[in-house]
Amino acid sequence: MTQLPPPSVGGDGAEDVPVAAFDDAHLQPYAKHPRRAEIVVGACLFVGFLGFVAYGATYWVGGQTQVEAVTLGLGFFGFGFAMSAWGKYLMPKGPFTEDRHPVEGTEPEVQALAAAVSERGKMVFRRRGVLGGLLGLAGAAMGVVLAFPLLRSLGPQPMKALDTTDWKPGAYLVDINARRITVDDLEVGGALTVFPEGFVGSAIDQTMLIRPSSVNIVTKPGRETWGPQGYLAYSKVCTHAGCPVGLYMEQTQQLLCPCHQSLFDVLDGAQQVFGPAPRPLPQLPLYIDSLGYLRAQAPYDQPIGPGFWERS
């Protein structure tokens, strides 16, 4: 490219205006055969056009997901490809350059700014130390009280909510249809999700009822009466991260949490045997009343679900 004497149309500061001759190599298209590139661009634009029209027609007659995808996708792609190819192959190929000017100022400029910030700041705060302190105090108070509506209003305090469930002594076990469970409901090897009566579907009360056997099961010392006629009930909320421990594997008598694969031994008080869960699933002590209904002897003896700070 030839640097010709600058034209003076621009007046002042026009000395370094770059000028190119019309036949400068930088201004020629990148394509070796521009005619072919034009044909490709034109063809792509036509494909784009067809794609758009075909999508419109598809939509008009009622739509079909895959056809919509192909037609409009092709429309967009042809349209875009043509535009990019036009820019790459038919516009001046360059390469062009621009100078990179350092962003930083001179040393005196930097010092002047720094001095202005610190000197003026000192003038404001050194002379009015008390006011500065009060400003800080009021600002801090503002920050604290704004957290009340921003955070505290959003929900209740936990209080004892994490420590308790809705299981009460004598609560009937019901299934998801609120039907009371009787001693004949589960075959040996069966499993069912149960809730305390009146709390069907509750997230914290969900309990796995399993019947590994037809005779009384003692899972841990001190739990001699908790598994009448082979019925065992464990909290279904994983002690790891709270997923429902939904997979009962009858052959190995284990419960598996599908989220992170914690494994619990059903016959050993749902002791965790593998995976990230830190604790056994809490067991619900059961009894069978005179009418044959399954009921809870007592609530869970510990908080259910994942760990938290206040859990002792």
Binding site: M1, L4, P7, V17, P18, V19, A20, A21, F22, D24, A25, H26, L27, G94, P95, F96, T97, E98
Partner: peptide, 13 residues
């Protein structure tokens, strides 16, 4: 590749 040049303001035709 050619030597890079500034983007021309004017093109002499």
């Amino acid at each position: 590749e050619l030597d890079p040049e500034l983007v021309p303001t004017f093109i002499e035709v």
